[in-house]
């Protein structure tokens, strides 16, 4: 099924280190098991039988931020939760990515009021925004694949600069 059938028993693959590292990062991305509100239920649906996110190497949700490299902010972030969210983000090891799932996490959604951050990008830097209230599991999977695209395009020299 894999590359060995196409190439035969050659035993050698040439590629750049960059491609290799980025490829391996995309195929074993561990999200943090961290649900906030309504979107968390759709995130669970995406994990469950009908949608099955493990097709993208993501069946393993880690409860500890120190073992995960993708944070899916699933739901609205309140003023009381903001500092906690930031601490969780700081505890994640580099490299790390953030998906703002749903309208509330992206821009505050319908809750334009005193209690909710108008977008989680005021708390943590966001890589991909997923629209919807809540987004369908397909939309979340699309968001995840968009992160994968972003990771595949990362250059070592950019990382070294920052």
């Amino acid at each position: 099924m894999g590359v060995e059938q196409k190439l035969g028993n050659m035993g050698v693959v040439t590629t750049t280190l960059e491609t290799m590292v980025n490829w391996s990062r995309t195929n074993a991305m561990w999200p943090m098991l961290f649900g906030l509100a309504c979107c968390a239920i759709e995130m669970m649906s995406a994990q469950a039988s009908s949608y099955d996110m493990s097709r993208f190497g993501m069946e393993l949700m880690r409860a500890s931020p120190r073992q995960s490299d993708l944070m899916i902010v699933a739901g609205r972030v309140s003023k009381k939760m903001g500092p906690v969210l930031r601490r969780l983000y700081d505890q994640m090891p580099e490299p790390k990515w953030v998906i703002a799932m749903g309208d509330c996490a992206s821009c505050g959604g319908v809750f334009n009021n005193y209690a909710i951050y108008q977008g989680v990008d005021e708390v943590v830097p966001v890589d991909v925004y997923v629209a919807g209230c809540p987004p369908r599991p397909e939309a979340l999977i699309h968001g995840v694949l968009t992160v994968h695209e972003k990771v595949k395009g990362e250059k070592f020299k950019d990382l070294a600069k920052s």
Binding site: S78, M81, V110, F111
Partner: peptide, 24 residues
């Protein structure tokens, strides 16, 4: 940690429009 201000926000909307808050 998930306080959303739903009660206050519903006071700022008309009776029809406040309904979307109850879903969430």
């Amino acid at each position: 940690y998930l306080h959303t201000g739903i009660e206050k926000n519903m006071e700022a909307k008309t009776y029809q429009k406040a309904e979307v808050m109850t879903d969430r």
